[in-house]
Design a protein around this nucleic acid. Structure first.
Lengths: 141, 141
DNA sequence: CTGTGTGCAAACACTTTGCAGGTGT
DNA sequence: ACACCTGCAAAGTGTTTGCACACAG
């Protein structure tokens, strides 16, 4: 299914009005959204709390993943197919890029974090890399 | 100078009681501390606010740097000599490691982030890599 | 009908700001 | 003396919890 409702039911989420709206907010957006960003994008007004809870449901069902920006603020982005590849249900070892000009944080789905040589006896489980700089849209010098 | 007071004056910070105590809290600790951690480690009790302001002064003078853990929480760690190398006054492109067992976040001073090939027109300015897993102390299987 | 979602109020954790008084140089 | 530091109170931001009602299956 490629309707919003279908997308929700695919992830075992009841297609409620709020969820459809929140999912729509992510549509066609290439960067990560905070709860506040989402609240502003919604057509109908939904309670802050409901949005938080919606995001939490989306997270636990693997529909979105969380991204922390350089200030530790939480943002969320849709999971692409890449997230569901491999043995693990989920892998988010991809890179996020925060533009210092426009402030947006985007997922660089195809950039993977190279293997890092850790000191002895350190065991890696997950990793996240945030690169800050200027994004393609702002870098029009 | 290698006294705490001397260390402070070296960084143009007046050696007040609170600052000496906070600096002492970082001594001999290999992992990053949050404001709360520091508050607990202090001998004398100082106001929360004063500790925050102390950390802010330390940050602006380059005595410590900020580390964000996997939840976006702020922690702080002493800058080592490595931080002051190179053309920039400060570089923190080193890796931080958060242990999922003991919860501590440590700076891997000597592990450097490999060059990442970014998509066209993306310009990198800074980056931070957080690796989660099990640290050497907890990995005693 | 039953479990889940929603709104509202309130609580919570963390951090910052304003102001009056105290301290280092 | 003067600038800077500190404590207290208060406010600010982002997020979570409790509870009563509403809704989907």
């Amino acid at each position: 299914m490629d309707t919003l409702e279908g997308h929700l039911t695919d992830f075992n989420l009841r297609p409620t009005a709020c969820r459809i709206e929140v999912l729509r907010a992510f549509e066609g957006v290439s960067f990560a959204l905070s709860q506040g960003d989402i609240e502003l994008k919604l057509q109908a007004a939904f309670d802050r709390v409901t949005i938080y809870r919606t995001l939490k449901s989306f997270l636990s069902q693997g529909l979105i993943h969380k991204v922390l920006d350089d200030q530790g603020g939480a943002k969320y982005a849709l999971c692409k197919d890449l997230c569901h590849q491999g043995e693990h249900v989920h892998q988010h070892d991809h890179v996020h890029f925060k533009c210092n000009a426009c402030g947006q944080t985007i997922c660089l789905e195809h950039v993977i974090i190279p293997k890092i040589q850790l000191p002895d006896k350190f065991l890696k489980q997950e990793s996240s890399l945030l690169i800050q700089g200027v994004c393609q849209d702002c870098n029009i010098a």
